[in-house]
Amino acid sequence: MNSVSDKRQEIRALLADVSALVSPPEIVIRLRQAIDAQDSTSESLAAIVMQDPNLSARILHIANSAMYGLNHRVETVSRAISIIGQRALYHLALAVTASQTFSKLPSELVNVAVFWRHSVFTALIARNLAQRCHVLHPERLFVAGLLHDLGSLVLYQRYPDILRESLLTARGNEDVVAQQERELIGFDHAEVGGALLELWGLPESLQQAVAFHHRPGAAANTIEVAIVHMADTLANRTDQGSASEFGAYASLPHPGTWKTLGLDESITDDIWKDVNLQFMETLHVILPQARN
């Protein structure tokens, strides 16, 4: 059994091999620097965003989408930023650019359409749960939900022969997939995903939420871990949001997760209803090529 330090070194070496494909884009780095400087304005941030026409269009589309439910149209990037907030801008820009970046990472083992449908569905549930739990900056949980399975793309590209049979056997059941990854290569896609978020400079709380989304009991009892774990669980219970090509399956949350969230399981149908209203539009905004 590998030690924790050995495992971390192996994961870092794995990411170093694909660093050219998974490094954060310059525009995300500049946005974070500008926001951290604490003297930025909506106009100064808009000037950065507008250097990428595609990102500008996506941010405007998001601000006008069902995700925000505004009753008037937002016409400028600076106005969109003033409405959704600087931190939300950063998190949404990160979501858009990360999805584009990691879509360049090919894998013969991944059904790309199913992968991104699951990712977006999980992201929307995570944001919904964060809002219900009154978590500060709920868009950061949208990002964690969107990126929670990115480690899979890295693993399946690097170890296709080792993982192929286990993926076929698991039939898309993510808990089984993660367990078999740990048995075959010593770590799972969630741990690789947490390391990816570290590489992209996301907060440690989100790194942990992604790294332990299949094993929340092994992590500190944080609201972020519980949210991403529950979002992933609830997404897998739906045909639209399941990570399995075979549709919904009986994914169960870790005992005590609802209690950690301070919520009751009876709200599940309401969450699915909210997310279904936003799902297709958000999917096509975040990643237009992820269509049926």
Results as ranks from 00 to 15, higher is better:
87 R>F: 09
262 G>V: 03
184 L>P: 05
231 A>I: 09
34 A>Y: 04
2 N>M: 11
92 L>I: 10
6 D>V: 12
287 L>F: 00
97 T>I: 01
224 E>P: 14
174 E>Y: 11
194 G>Q: 05
247 G>R: 05
45 L>A: 04
123 A>P: 04
115 F>V: 00
150 L>N: 12
19 S>I: 13
131 Q>L: 11
38 Q>T: 10
259 K>T: 15
162 I>P: 02
258 W>K: 02
41 T>F: 03
120 V>I: 10
190 A>K: 00
209 A>N: 14
287 L>W: 04
206 L>V: 12
246 F>M: 06
286 I>V: 15
192 V>F: 05
196 L>I: 15
213 H>P: 03
134 H>Y: 08
41 T>A: 09
75 E>Y: 09
193 G>K: 03
25 P>Y: 06
89 L>M: 03
148 H>K: 06
225 V>M: 11
60 L>W: 01
245 E>K: 08
274 D>R: 04
7 K>D: 03
154 V>T: 05
107 S>H: 13
57 A>L: 09
101 T>A: 13
170 A>G: 04
180 Q>C: 00
61 H>S: 03
259 K>Y: 10
37 A>S: 15
140 R>F: 01
242 S>H: 06
63 A>Q: 00
258 W>V: 00
214 H>L: 05
217 G>A: 12
67 M>E: 06
225 V>N: 14
272 W>T: 06
63 A>D: 05
231 A>K: 02
265 E>S: 14
8 R>K: 13
94 L>M: 10
227 I>K: 12
182 R>L: 08
106 P>L: 01
66 A>S: 07
276 N>R: 04
245 E>T: 15
157 Q>H: 15
260 T>M: 12
61 H>L: 07
228 V>D: 07
272 W>G: 04
271 I>L: 14
265 E>G: 09
122 T>W: 09
264 D>I: 08
87 R>E: 14
253 P>F: 00
235 A>C: 07
82 S>T: 07
83 I>V: 14
52 D>L: 04
101 T>G: 00
273 K>F: 13
228 V>T: 15
